[in-house]
Design a protein around this nucleic acid. Structure first.
Lengths: 127, 127
DNA sequence: CAGGATCCAGCAGGATACTG
DNA sequence: CAGTATCCTGCTGGATCCTG
């Protein structure tokens, strides 16, 4: 079974976690990053408050923290316009855009298999 | 830009987080789930201690918690053999296996773009 | 072996108030 | 507007000990 096809290489290479995708998971799928990236992609370049309102439940503090992290990782570009009142715009970088196929795959998997997860949960909780 | 191609549908549908993949992210990419799934896929059906040793840094308590969750979500199958000493085996379910292409994509993205993230970080920390 | 039970610490993240 | 500062809490996850 280990030889299914595409992933098996480099497994057990890292004694720490034995999982080669752990780093990228931490970068891309840590809390709030997907809603932020998704919103930025879906609605294009936008300001802080727009982002805040569209995500809906995030607090400004946390939004700032995550945006700074995403900016540092090169996934998001921040543009500051020194005006009164100040205006700041965020947009997805080219590197961030390269995640699009991944997110699409995830979305498709979700559409097909999320119901199965719900089903499994129901069966588990019943039995 | 909103009309790139494949993901944009259903965005802003959920007022809570405006991100359709949020649920699946929570299921598949919560802490420790990727190392566990990866290890189970890479080395096939195995026992609790093997899993524990291969992942390396996880504590038995947390490993149990995560395995229970994955079992409930139908991604992992637990088989209990009533012997002395007791023997329990874990393996990926069919549903869990359906994640393989996703993980492969993630792995490829990682190979290509992780260096760019490192680079972005270095540049950011320098400038 | 495969865990359950218990206690505890760190930190992500919420609430609230305040500035350039 | 676009945050920062401060305080505070919940919950994940570590450490340790115990059992069928």
């Amino acid at each position: 079974m280990p030889e299914t096809e595409s992933w098996t290489a480099a497994a057990s290479a890292d004694p720490e976690n034995a999982c080669p995708i752990a780093p990228v998971v931490e970068i891309v799928f840590s809390r709030w990053t997907t809603p932020i990236l998704w919103t930025l992609h879906a609605h294009g370049k936008q300001r802080f408050v727009e982002l805040e309102r569209r995500i809906g439940t995030i607090t400004p503090k946390v939004l700032t923290q995550r945006l700074r992290q995403l900016e540092r990782d090169g996934l998001v570009v921040r543009t500051y316009h020194p005006e009164v009142p100040p205006r700041v715009e965020y947009e997805i970088s080219e590197l961030g855009l390269s995640l699009a196929p991944l997110f699409a795959t995830l979305n498709e998997w979700s559409a097909v298999n999320l119901p199965k997860v719900e089903q499994a949960r129901a069966a588990h909780d019943a039995g």
